[in-house]
Write a protein that binds this DNA or RNA. Structure first.
Lengths: 101, 101
DNA sequence: GAGACAGTTCGACAGTTATCGAACAGTGTG
DNA sequence: CACACTGTTCGATAACTGTCGAACTGTCTC
């Protein structure tokens, strides 16, 4: 499996981050990733088809929200929290807190 | 001109707010509205066709971001900051601060 | 090597969205 | 009343998006 590209956080426009977070499935993924780092894709929303999830992973990766590293046949997903906090201070925390229902 | 509907802020999902903010034109409108309340639509982005802007106003209204009140033949636009802050604490401030380039 | 497993890519489809000109509805002014 | 002005509504169109099955790539295990 070829290496997936992660954008430099400084190249990510704010609107891309907001768009990535504006989908309920992706927001759910981000919330789970915020709780537990280094989770494989299979740990998320197993009732959703893999191809659909893979699409969302890509959107999240491209928006700089998630970093995926290969580990055997899995990919471990981690929220790029520190980088995001540095570029968009308070944004992620506010979204996560607001998403707590 | 008939009265425009503004949703109760508690009925607005977080994803709707994020989606409304994820468009560059709408984000620009919100930023301007954050600086000056009670601005007529004509004060915003005059180079964009009126019908396009009206569409964006509607999205912003439906997402609970902007309140429009009729004043003569104009509509004055005001960011629903206090309500948004109560429902999504810190979100708007983080977005506005991040949008400062 | 065969097969199970994790995740991506491809192609197709339906639904949504942004854009814009033209027509329209209220409102103020002469 | 006629006209200018502000903003909405109505198509129409092109582009984008979410969803999903099928095929594929790479990895691990037996």
């Amino acid at each position: 499996m070829r290496q997936l590209k992660h954008p430099d956080i400084d190249d990510v426009p704010l609107t891309a981050v907001l768009h990535a977070l504006s989908d309920p499935v992706r927001l759910a993924i981000v919330r789970m990733a915020a709780r537990q780092p280094d989770q494989p894709c299979s740990a998320f929303l197993s009732q959703i088809p893999k191809s659909t999830l893979s699409h969302h992973w890509r959107v999240l990766r491209d928006a700089g929200l998630i970093r995926q590293v290969s580990a055997g046949r899995e990919k471990l997903n981690t929220l790029r929290k520190d980088e995001l906090d540095a570029r968009f201070p308070g944004l992620l925390d506010a979204v996560l807190a607001s998403a707590e229902h």
